[in-house]
Design a protein around this nucleic acid. Structure first.
Length: 368
DNA sequence: AAAACGGGGCC
DNA sequence: GGCCCAGTTTT
């Protein structure tokens, strides 16, 4: 069910001046102090922050951002780094494809743009990991381009300002983008974009919006109609299926056998104690048995880690295996879903990517 | 159009 | 336990 665009866009146009003025005044007073909000803005810092902020809260990102910028102060620094090390800097942040894309994007900028971050939307869009939102964010905030950002915050604010009920429908994205672009001022569009997102994060929140503190409440249709709590309608997700897995923590002295995940897929490119589907395939059961110091059947799991992801729940039994002093995985034999195996000490692990699940498994095994 | 892709904080 | 976060890419 799509609604005609005309009337709402006309509404947006006629109310834009009042909304801009009130929102910008509020933002000047209430903007959070964030490490990437430097004056002037550093395009590299904006890029890094925007990628980290994809589907990730500001409070989660801040410490990662600090560490990342210390290690990779400019685009050249990242371009010349090894991917494993970059994934190490991303460990625990999630959506690891972002780190891979940022790394590739940095090399792209060095190769194609003489190490200067491009300042047009089309060129930004050509970088890996940079889509509609991120190109508009970098373009407007770092370069002053008049491109509206449309993230979850902005969509919620717009849905309420104009009492649009169908946020969950993909068809409404186009309408929200047109409204956002209509509201966007020609002067300092980046500031307006940041202000819209800040309003969504601090005032026009998903649950319990703080309408009494809202600078644009006088312009808000949802507020006027008493619909601020029912717009947007909550998305309904299917329950996450539970996946039963077994992680094999094979230790040999102070080293642990770690596997590097295939590039694509869950935890792509990250290292963890090899995880098998339950029950373990006989081939890999034998393989584990051969690494073991003592003969006989594999020991029982000593712990179980419940790792909750957005669309899945991982129930991971933790198997602890003491390997023979001379044990070595057979050359070329790599468990399904992995591209390499290596004995690693705690120090080795700090120099490559490990998922939160990997750290929890190691901890449950009594290591770390 | 839908699925895949992390992790955590807050109710 | 559910919701959602300064989304992008692949299927």
């Amino acid at each position: 069910m799509t609604r005609p665009l005309g009337p709402t866009l006309a509404q947006a146009r006629s109310r834009s001046t009042a909304i801009r003025r009130a929102l910008l005044a509020w933002f000047r007073k209430n903007a959070r102090v964030l490490p990437w909000r430097t004056d002037p803005r550093d395009p590299w810092a904006v890029w890094v922050s925007e990628v980290m902020l994809q589907q990730t809260r500001v409070t989660t990102v801040v410490p990662y951002f600090h560490a990342f910028m210390l290690r990779y102060p400019d685009v050249k620094a990242l371009a010349s780094a090894e991917l494993d090390e970059v994934l190490g800097a991303w460990s625990g942040l999630g959506y690891y494809r972002r780190a891979r894309a940022l790394h590739a994007g940095a090399r792209d900028v060095v190769d194609r743009f003489e190490a200067t971050i491009p300042s047009t939307i089309d060129e930004l869009l050509s970088l890996p990991g940079v889509g509609d939102y991120t190109s508009a964010a970098i373009g407007s905030i770092a370069f002053g381009l008049r491109a509206a950002v449309v993230d979850g915050n902005v969509r919620r604010v717009i849905a309420r300002l104009f009492a649009l009920r169908s946020q969950q429908e993909a068809s409404s994205v186009d309408l929200h983008k047109q409204i956002a672009q209509t509201l966007l001022p020609a002067r300092a569009p980046g500031t307006f974009n940041e202000a819209m997102m800040e309003l969504g994060a601090l005032v026009c929140t998903p649950g319990q919006p703080r309408c009494e503190a809202c600078p644009v409440r006088a312009s808000c249709d949802a507020r006027r109609l008493g619909l601020q709590d029912s717009i947007p309608a909550p998305l309904k997700r299917d329950a996450s299926p539970v996946v039963r897995l077994i992680a094999a923590v094979v230790s040999r002295g102070d080293a642990v056998l770690m596997g590097k995940r295939d590039r694509d897929g869950l935890f792509g490119g990250m290292w963890d104690p090899p995880v098998f589907e339950q029950p373990i395939d006989p081939t890999w059961r034998r393989w584990l048995t051969k690494l073991r110091a003592s003969p006989g059947r594999l020991p029982a799991a000593i712990a179980s880690v419940r790792h909750v992801l957005t669309h899945r729940v991982l129930e991971v039994d933790v198997l602890c295996i003491e390997a023979r002093g001379d044990a070595n995985p057979q050359e070329g034999a790599v468990p399904p879903g992995y591209q390499a195996l290596r004995w690693m000490t705690a120090g080795d692990m700090r120099r490559c990517g490990t998922s939160s699940l990997a750290r929890r498994v190691l901890q449950a095994a009594g290591l770390k």
